[in-house]
Nucleic acid binder design. Structure first.
Length: 412
RNA sequence: GUGGCUAUAGCUCAGUUGGUUAGAGCGCCUGGUUGUGGUCCAGGAGGUCGGGGGUUCGAGUCCCCUUAGCCACCCCA
């Protein structure tokens, strides 16, 4: 047993398994890059107040932040979610709107770890600021749907709702609060004393008590103001037009308080654990103001890389790629030729590796088999041969002067 | 944060009511065989049994603590 191990709730991803991370991120980068989103790099810790703006009543802020005082006495926190940092950066730099950015970043939450739930996990996501256009909601929601399709995932369910805005939500909130107060003693223990914080959360409670008590509660979707209703209708129509299927779920409440209007969540149904949320997001038209900036509408999402990969495992798609090398060099003459030839092959743009330590022919050949290379170049005192590694074939003796060209020819 | 289960070789796991040098398969290393590599044969390396304490003549096995993982709650990505 090693003396040290990765801290609780964290993990290492080693090659070759890590190749899936690489490929997933590059797929995502390609997808959102084609849609006009540029990479945004931001610090993985911020003034703790930046994250507090996402909502004081949320678990993320109340009990899951990795926060500490730095040597200058500043109270900072490791990023628990992605949107706050991006909106902070937007407000700080005031880029041209609409501003469309994507990110890939570690996220930290101090929770009890479980499969699919970690203290450090990784998300890819996008944020689009400066437009309230419902068609932007459609674009943003369609991106993860397209990603999942490209990965080959079948069993992803999109849940969708609207939380209203400042025009209609306050009245609804009061109505719901009144409804809940009448039934306060019927709610579960957790929510009996917490309905004032965020009454919407009670609707999402999984406990039987809350479920029955709120069965006939008023629904935000029935109380949307005209503008919000029109916005939501356009979002639905847009998704329909793009062939993105969804389920309207009026009980959907996301973990963050900043959402307005459109919110959504992608559920990986292949995962039977309760950690089956693959990603989610929504509109946050008041967050820029809360961050001290000008009123700026915005919408975005975050996707959990580990959750997506777990879902891929469960559906048997997007496995670790087989071949990562073109050619493997074996040298039984001392190693100088391997050193020079490998360098030449790489300079020619081929993926090449070699055996080390001047081992036996058999040991080097074994290493070549493990390498996943398609071809081996075998350097022996009297000749140089090219051999196939993945299927049977005759060794082909090659001229020492043109090894690179001949390898290239064989690969073509 | 609450509760339950688990921890033995690089990996997957055996290990009796506590008993003497802790095992297997796979993987790894060496040699032989093979069509100079995938087969087969022989040999070898590798474990303070997660860590600490206790009970006992004796602990991988029983007890306590601790660390980590898993599961449920909770929450979410």
């Amino acid at each position: 047993m090693p003396t040290f191990q990765a801290p609780k709730g964290t993990f290492d991803v080693l090659p070759p398994a890590s190749a899936r991370y690489e490929r997933l991120v590059s797929r995502f980068a390609g997808l959102v890059g084609r849609a006009g989103y540029g990479l945004l790099v931001s610090p993985m810790f911020e003034d703790v107040e930046v994250f507090r703006r996402v909502g004081e009543s949320t678990d993320v802020v109340r009990k899951e932040m990795f926060d500490f005082e730095d040597k200058g006495g500043r109270h900072v926190a490791l990023r628990p979610e992605g949107t706050a940092s991006v909106v902070r950066a937007y407000v700080e730099h005031r880029p041209q709107a609409p501003f469309k950015a994507w990110y890939v970043a570690p996220h930290f939450r101090h929770e009890r770890p479980q499969a699919g739930r970690y203290r450090q996990h990784h998300q890819v996501g996008v944020e689009a600021l400066g437009s309230a256009d419902a068609d932007l909601d459609v674009e943003v929601i369609a991106l993860p749907a397209q990603l999942f399709r490209e990965l080959g995932l079948q069993r992803i369910r999109l849940r969708l709702t609207s939380l209203g805005d400042d025009t209609c939500r306050p009245a609804y909130r009061e109505e719901l609060l009144a409804y809940l107060r009448e039934r306060q003693d019927q709610l579960c223990d957790e929510h009996q004393g917490r309905i004032e914080d965020n009454p919407l959360r009670v609707l999402d409670c999984k406990r039987e008590a809350c479920r029955t008590a709120t069965k006939d509660s008023p629904r935000m979707l029935d109380r949307l103001c005209d503008e919000c209703a029109a916005h939501f209708d356009r979002v639905k129509a847009g998704l329909d037009a793009l062939g993105v299927t969804y389920d309207i779920d009026p009980t959907l409440v996301r973990g963050l308080d900043y959402y307005t209007r459109t919110t959504f969540e992608f559920e990986a149904q292949a995962l039977d654990s309760s950690q089956n949320g693959a990603g989610g997001g929504g509109r946050y038209d008041r967050l820029a103001e809360a961050m001290g900036g000008p009123p700026t509408p915005g919408i975005g999402f975050g996707l959990g890389i580990e959750r997506i990969l777990l879902a891929c495992d469960a559906e048997g798609v997007f496995g670790v790629p087989e071949t990562t090398l073109d050619v493997f060099v074996i040298d039984t003459t001392g190693g100088e030729t391997a050193r020079d030839l490998t360098a030449a092959l790489r300079a020619a743009g081929l993926r090449a590796d070699r055996a080390w330590d001047n081992r036996s022919w058999k040991a080097q050949m074994k290493a070549a088999m493990h390498s996943t290379a398609a071809l081996a170049v075998v350097v022996e005192p009297e000749r140089i041969t090219i051999r196939t590694l993945r299927e049977k074939g005759e060794a082909e003796t090659v001229d020492g002067e043109n090894v690179v060209d001949q390898v290239r020819k064989r690969l073509a």
